[in-house]
């Protein structure tokens, strides 16, 4: 852990508000991305992030620098806060059984061409339960066992939901590719260019 993080943690432990503010200013943007991946809307993500930071300040004494970086510790808190917030708002996970089977396409190229914001937007459109598993497994690197504990589901459910999440993502990327192809035509028509 770098010296800046150590100073920030010690400052927060003392209850120094300037260090707390520094912590927010340093990590808020990155943690907001994490929060956005789990939340449905920007506002929801911001609320989750606020709650997560309050938890971080209240439990900063539990942070162990030997176990990992400060960012990952905070990221875990943000993820758990987002999931808890979701569970509180929607006690039952949405049951989506009919996942569309989409033929395999060359979507990797599409991803390469996408901006991060577009990617986040596409991920945010995946149904909640699938999105959570997808985020936890693919982006945040949790195993299916850990996911099953976090979400209180079985490992097999976690696997199947990941599969379905990927299927939906493929479909959305494919649609996005079609949409992207249409953009030049639409622009031409709008601007009246021959």
């Amino acid at each position: 852990m770098n010296k800046r993080d150590i100073d920030i943690v010690h400052g927060c432990l003392r209850g120094d508000k300037s260090f707390e503010r520094l912590l927010v200013e340093t990590y808020a943007a990155e943690l907001m991305t994490v929060s956005r991946r789990y939340a449905r809307t920007w506002e929801e993500a911001e609320d989750v992030l606020q709650d997560a930071f309050i938890k971080i300040f209240n439990h900063i004494d539990q942070f162990d620098e030997k176990k990992g970086e400060l960012y990952y510790w905070m990221r875990t808190i943000v993820i758990r806060t987002a999931l808890r917030d979701y569970k509180r708002k929607f006690p039952r996970t949405e049951d989506i059984t009919a996942a569309a089977q989409i033929q395999e396409n060359k979507i990797i190229d599409v991803v390469d061409k996408l901006q991060e914001e577009d990617l986040l937007n596409i991920i945010s459109k995946i149904p909640d339960g699938y999105r959570q598993v997808f985020n936890l497994y693919v982006i945040d690197g949790f195993s299916h066992k850990e996911i099953s504990q976090i979400l209180s589901i079985s490992e097999s459910t976690s696997r199947s939901q990941l599969t379905r999440a990927k299927s939906i993502l493929r479909r959305k990327l494919k649609n996005y590719k079609s949409y992207a192809k249409c953009i030049p035509i639409t622009l031409t028509m709008t601007l009246g260019i021959d």
């Binding site: 927010v24 200013e25 808020a28 990155e30 991305t33 606020q50 991803v111 991060e116 986040l120």
Partner: peptide
């Protein structure tokens, strides 16, 4: 991997001061 790498520590456009 591609998605993970791109979103891993991607910073959102957020007003940290206002958030604080």
């Amino acid at each position: 991997n591609d998605i993970r790498n791109r979103l891993k520590r991607y910073p959102s456009d957020l007003d940290a001061g206002l958030l604080w």
